[in-house]
Design a protein around this nucleic acid. Structure first.
Lengths: 336, 336
DNA sequence: CAAATATAGGTAAACGTTTACCCTTGTTTC
DNA sequence: GAAACAAGGGTAAACGTTTACCTATATTTG
């Protein structure tokens, strides 16, 4: 593969000149630009990004660390980051397959080795401490979907507590008194906060959830189906069901209908996340929109700013997002 | 950030020795290994991958070029490639947002600049010629979901024609005689071949599709809904419907049910791709499985082999995949 | 017309590694 | 006890760029 030296030799100029036309630098005559450009095409020259990165000390690379890509939630996240990468002429380095704190750390370390200047990290396994240390080491590191007090201005997160409250208010507005809830069996912050917000808001309106009407399951379609079985097995009746995420909610609707319950006329079901699925289900799922792509774009932008020499936004940037209710077809007024 | 020289200085050895422990090279005593390792941790040393790539002339980087990530089909593709990247200790460079031959070319050129040794490309816009030229330039380049005679052993593709035939045989086996079809309005190879295989197989069984019962639309949920309207507007009746992809098929089912047709008892609907959605729809969608993740893994593996010094598999590798019928709930025996 | 100033372009150091080649020391072999 | 060899480790060139600094020519200025 042709190098800058080859181009310089053939064009009869110094490598400095070639470098200058490559970077639209000053101090090159029009004639030289043309000549060099022509030779570059002739030799099919492609500048070596690794050499460039080495000497300029910047890799023009944007890293994303997510658990996987098949979950449309994370795909949207990655897509958002990619979008700003492309716009800023940077390239995306993607790591997935994170199952433990160790693999997460490993993925991040690989990005550091590549001298990736900005990184958007979705980590649920690494400790606050570890992430704070990392953040101090990598100026362009931003956390998404996680809040850590000590590095608050580097966190882009969704207010899950408020999400739960919004869900509760929706059900209250629809006159539901007997409500049930399906949460994730993985008791990380998200499900806990959603449930907490939901419960507390209901309670302050005088509505209590019976303990038998809270079920936990895998955050998947099947998990939702199974969780509904549990709820029904309790023998308690309910007219509204708040589910941890859309996949579970769709599974829940399936199971409810299989058991002869009509959604939403007999039971209203509300999901969370507003992923693609929710628009494809029947009835179309009412849910809470998690603006993940927008948040990812925001995170990447902050990361780029932070990684630059003089970051502008030191504080007072809004890092907290509030989910919004998307009323579709799976929730309706309680007529019982 | 600490460099190899810093480590060498602090540990009181030469940079060569540090490099050797870094690479588990020979000619290092156990004592040196320990000492150097300790200093590395002390200084929080991280080897510079760009410098390494420069001197070794290999980037341990695997590139993926796809139109987008939100389409679960492409997400699966990327996931498959990522899987082998991780397993081979390489990193994923991802490019999306391809709308034209130009942007596709641009994305590939960026990968070349990074000296990405293996690339898995999903291109629908670039010409055969351009791709052949690229393939000759980049040994580790593999095409996925496309077949080009001249570089056949670098193409991993699905036999869409056979897919259409399989769909036809399924309907024939279910005794359907009045069949309809929804194709994509974008007449690239995939929809054309699927339709062609479908039609020809039906024809050889004496079943003809009336021209009014072939509709074209955007390959999306809405596109499927609209296409069904067109079919119904024709006034012709049909008992089986083969749809270009799952998203359209789910839209089609929605529209059919909205018009009072029961699926599958009155009309059978068969999709294509077997993306996540098909398992979440009601009724669960019968479809043709496109083993995209498996194919992506295969593509990445071939790419890695091709990029190595002495590729093993020169020919006789199977690059053609056949979709398989996944019978779920949206197709049934014709009782009319 | 000399001096000052632009303008274009060249030279070489630097970025952080790897690795071929060389040197030292100690051990084995006869 | 000399010769051969093995083991550990150091020196320096090379990878392909960018860029600070320098030089040479042309142009402007008084």
């Amino acid at each position: 593969m042709a190098t800058i030296k080859d181009v310089a030799r053939v064009a009869g100029v110094s490598v400095a000149s070639v470098s200058r036309v490559l970077n639209n630098g000053p101090k090159v005559s029009k004639a030289t630009i043309e000549k060099v450009t022509r030779v570059m095409q002739e030799l099919n020259y492609s500048p070596n990004a690794n050499a460039r990165a080495l000497v300029t000390q910047k890799s023009t690379t944007l890293g994303v660390v997510i658990p996987n890509l098949v979950d449309p939630f994370f795909a949207s996240l990655a897509q958002g980051v990619e979008q700003v990468a492309r716009q800023k002429n940077m390239q995306l380095l993607l790591s997935t397959g994170l199952v433990s704190a160790e693999t997460e750390m490993q993925a991040i370390n690989l990005l550091i080795e590549r001298r990736c200047e900005v990184m958007v990290i979705h980590s649920k396994k690494l400790s606050d401490q570890a992430l704070i240390a990392l953040a101090n080491q990598v100026p362009g590191l931003v956390l998404i979907d996680r809040y850590i007090e000590a590095i608050a201005q580097r966190c882009i997160w969704l207010d899950n507590l408020e999400g739960g409250r919004i869900a509760a208010r929706h059900f209250l507005a629809l006159a539901h008194k007997n409500v049930a809830c399906i949460s994730s069996k993985y008791q990380i912050d998200d499900p806990r906060l959603r449930l907490q917000g939901f419960q507390s808001e209901l309670l302050s309106a005088g509505v209590d959830i019976e303990p038998e009407l809270i079920a936990y399951g895998e955050p998947t379609l099947q998990g939702g189906e199974i969780a509904v079985q549990k709820l029904l097995a309790s023998g308690k009746s309910f007219s509204a069901l708040f589910v941890y995420n859309d996949a579970m909610a769709i599974g829940a609707i399936s199971a409810l209908e299989d058991n002869g319950f009509k959604v939403p006329s007999e039971i209203s079901v509300l999901g969370f996340d507003d992923v693609l699925l929710s628009r494809y289900s029947r009835p179309k799922l009412s849910t809470l929109n998690y603006p993940v792509e927008e948040m990812a774009i925001h995170a990447a932008s902050i990361g780029i700013d932070l990684a630059s020499k003089q970051p502008k936004n030191t504080a007072n940037i809004n890092c907290k997002y509030i989910p919004s209710l998307v009323k579709r077809e799976s929730t309706s007024f309680n007529l019982t």
